[in-house]
Write a protein that binds this DNA or RNA. Sequence first.
DNA 1: CCCGAGGATTGGAACGTTCCACTTGGCGGT
DNA 2: ACCGCCAAGTGGAACGTTCCAATCCTCGGG
Lengths: 326, 326
Amino acid sequence: MERAPRLQDVAAAAGVSRQTVSNVINSPGLVREDTRERVSRAIADLGYRPHAAARSLRTRRSSTIAMHLDPYAGGISGVVLDRFVHALTDLAGERGMRVLLYTGRDHDEEIARLAELLDGGEADATVITGTFHGDPRTRWLAARRTPFVAFGRPWGEDDHHSWVDVDGAAGTRKATAWALDAAGPRVAFLGWPAGSGTGDDRELGWRSALPSQAGLRLVSEESVGDARAVVADVLASGAAIDALVCASDSLAIGAHLAAVAAGRADLPIVGFDNTPAAEAIGLSSVEQLPEQVASAALDLLLDPSGSATAPDGARHVLVEPQLVLR
Amino acid sequence: MERAPRLQDVAAAAGVSRQTVSNVINSPGLVREDTRERVSRAIADLGYRPHAAARSLRTRRSSTIAMHLDPYAGGISGVVLDRFVHALTDLAGERGMRVLLYTGRDHDEEIARLAELLDGGEADATVITGTFHGDPRTRWLAARRTPFVAFGRPWGEDDHHSWVDVDGAAGTRKATAWALDAAGPRVAFLGWPAGSGTGDDRELGWRSALPSQAGLRLVSEESVGDARAVVADVLASGAAIDALVCASDSLAIGAHLAAVAAGRADLPIVGFDNTPAAEAIGLSSVEQLPEQVASAALDLLLDPSGSATAPDGARHVLVEPQLVLR
DNA sequence: CCCGAGGATTGGAACGTTCCACTTGGCGGT
DNA sequence: ACCGCCAAGTGGAACGTTCCAATCCTCGGG
């Protein structure tokens, strides 16, 4: 087994200096056409691959994005994040970036782990998810001047950083508009208790699509069982409902089960997240398009040259979700 | 903003040489008690963090495990892999290893991407999933002598590498035994067309648990709709079934929908994978315990010293799944 | 024919760590 | 008193790349 070829070996084979080979790889524009071709051929012949650690040591850049992986929630969600991670890895790869994972049971541990990665030069940017008002992570990252972008709005005034999010209100608005058209005027909403930014946003979309700006609003915890009980009660009480828009697929599934049990299997129900579970049961749902979120996140994170950019200008992107009818 | 402290700075602060500080970090046993404490204090005071690239350049090790991320299948599965990745990242972190993701649309592209990472020294081991008989990846990896472990059996005689898998047969055996006991002797099986290692394995478990080694076997593609149709037909034909064991949660959900529609909502059905969808609907399922798989995979991949080990001895682990009743 | 400008190329130095061969100091045995 | 041994610690060299300042070459203008 031979030692792996180095820049020096390529240089010797092509009859040029180390630096010229380096230029062919990193700044082809500086090298004359014929030289460039000769060097390229030598690279291919020898099967040369740059050594990432040596490059990283010299340039002080790792071309790596650190991404926190949430503990498995056990709930019905997670698919959105899953697709987001996949798309992020794929698109980052196309831009010459890698995605490195890390975990942490709570935000403090998450920060500690991330600090290791950043200080050790293993990552030079990060993507965080599930931000909330007063999130310690965003403050910490901004203070360090580490390039980062959040998947999720800060839900407060402190949005002094870049983020990408899905326009939940637009999603429920679309769902409600469809329900009004297809089923009738009495479109109810099944959401979570007030106070969560995401939930309030999704409720807002429903309300704004109603002609009267008022309608029946049901509340349930994020659980199939609870949602089922709530909807069963309402249906038993004889309330007149033409359709139901829900804040999540879990809620939608609970509602669906209640509707079937009450002999109203035909009640139009729209969920949120377009999880495989909703697909399996045949429920309509609002699709978050995580691939678009990932693409936008990279646009905010990387400057045109391809390297991670300091978080000077806080920029935002709202991705418009899509209604999937079944 | 100060420059980050180097080994040299710590050495000066503690009044020792670079190498001694290095030893405190990497081989504490070589350093005398009092010296070690003095150096440790200096490290803490200065907030020193080793620079990963420099270490990696010198040692020729990256302490990084590359993991391929499958394209989002769109199906109901994926959760198992999701939990596996999370557990792998978590446990690897405890052993001083990182997990780096990569993608590839097909096996050739997957190999090409992996070659970049390995040749560039960005990763020194890998975990692959979804192996099959004659898989080009295992051959390639073995030829390179890259440490790796597969999540999934090779399903052939060519198992000259380490792997971890879930004992599907044991899972369906447990499910069948429970059904025989709780419902009655006529336990049917709903599986995929013969020929897939995983599917045949799961069928085997069911068959081996039946007293007569024979029973009603239904076949469906991996889709809720198809499964529903198949089961609806069988129920309409008046076949006597006491319970149904399925090769996946998708199939189980289809079966469940058919059973409810046929007025047999009480028919005991057991799925496989214990996905959130099964949980949401309240179906029993066989749980794969991906955390245990991840733990076993790391045991096979890393030698006791914590560094990735060459794939000399091919070792295997079969994790026994767990029946979750609902 | 010489000069200056700028494109193309070069080679020494540096990034921060660990390897390796070496020195120092203390201790037990002869 | 000397030797050999081992634990503890040292400092030069090397890992493979890019930065940087300097040199070489080519060509057009005076």
